[in-house]
């Protein structure tokens, strides 16, 4: 379990991260979203014990990152936003080196190396030089290196940047698999859709402030965001459009052809139920009511807009 408690970092008079707190359970895949310079990397570096927090702390399985950094380091796998690989060694030598640094018992090392190579789909590159690998493979090797000591927490800083769509899809699959293995995974990104489908928790950070934290739906609900409702009727669409105009919680109405009306709606679920009931009671031949899916990008733009204004 990872508990982050009021983590705070100042660089001189500049505040990079302001009192960030959240808790993650084993199996959580946490998407950490923010634009460039929002404080993602600083937060991750503090969790990786590379930076000392100005105040506040975090605990991994009860070990404090500032008081017991060595214990914490045994339990984390950190992948920086650049790979930092040694390119003059072979793939298996690289993994052998890191399993030695993490004090994996000598007799277990061959098995561990085979396992992580298989997991990251690099078995066929076992004897290749690291420098000869493609970017996607180097990425996976980097991840394999994070796994040799079976850590509880994986800190992945922008793992998908610079990967082609195929490599990105493979990475997603791999991270989902690791989540199922019960690891805590923290993935940062500034590209939102790439996180939406496999993260079960999302945090949005902007200018060092954690603006939202929770499940993707939860965040969307917690926001007073405007959602778009789409009504499809058999006829009388323009009449419905006029009728809806000025009703509570409705901001704008748009007539979309002969049978469809869209509205910007900012009410709660209860308000929405009432609205639908009112439309039906008023005798409009409603065939379908559809709520346009909230996508992470909209959520992000909505949330961060407040911080920027």
């Amino acid at each position: 379990m990872l508990e982050v408690l009021n983590l705070h970092k100042n660089y001189g008079s500049f505040t990079a991260v302001t009192d960030v707190s959240f808790t993650l359970e084993p199996g959580d895949v946490f998407g950490f979203i923010g634009s460039n310079g929002a404080g993602k990397t600083t937060t991750i570096k503090m969790l990786a014990t590379l930076l000392e927090p100005t105040h506040g702390t975090a605990r991994l399985d009860g070990f404090d990152i500032t008081e017991h950094p060595l214990e914490v380091r045994k339990r984390i796998g950190y992948m920086p936003d650049f790979f930092g690989l040694y390119d003059d060694v072979k793939v298996w030598e690289y993994l052998d080196y890191f399993s030695a640094l993490y004090s994996v018992p000598v007799k277990d090392r061959p098995g561990v190396i085979d396992n992580v190579l298989e997991l990251t789909d690099l078995t066929f590159k076992r004897d290749a030089m690291v420098a000869s690998l493609s970017r996607g493979m180097q990425q996976r090797l980097c991840l394999a290196r994070c796994l040799v000591h079976d850590p509880t927490l994986l800190l992945l800083d922008e793992p998908a940047s610079g990967l082609d769509p195929r490599a990105r899809a493979e990475l997603k699959e791999l991270l989902a698999e690791l989540g199922r293995m019960g690891k805590i995974i923290l993935v940062s990104s500034h590209i939102l859709p790439e996180l939406a489908d496999f993260c079960n928790k999302v945090g949005i950070i902007e200018r060092g402030n954690m603006l939202a934290f929770g499940g993707v739906d939860e965040i969307a609900r917690g926001l007073k965001s405007i959602k778009v409702l789409e009504f499809r009727v058999m006829d009388r669409a323009s009449e419905l459009s006029m009728w809806l105009h000025g009703k509570p919680n409705i901001q704008n109405t748009y007539l979309m052809g002969a049978t469809t009306v869209k509205v910007d709606f900012d009410g709660s679920h209860e308000n929405q139920v009432e609205l639908v009931r009112a439309i039906v009671n008023a005798g409009y031949p409603v065939m379908e009511v559809r709520e346009e899916g909230v996508d992470l990008e909209d959520v992000f733009l909505n949330v961060t807009q407040g911080a920027l204004n």
Binding site: L50, E71, R73, K74, Y78, G84, L85, L101
Partner: peptide, 14 residues
């Protein structure tokens, strides 16, 4: 120079 120092520093070595 290779920017591998950070990775080395996150290993449990003194």
């Amino acid at each position: 120079e290779k920017r591998s120092m950070e990775v080395l520093l996150t290993t449990p070595l003194t």
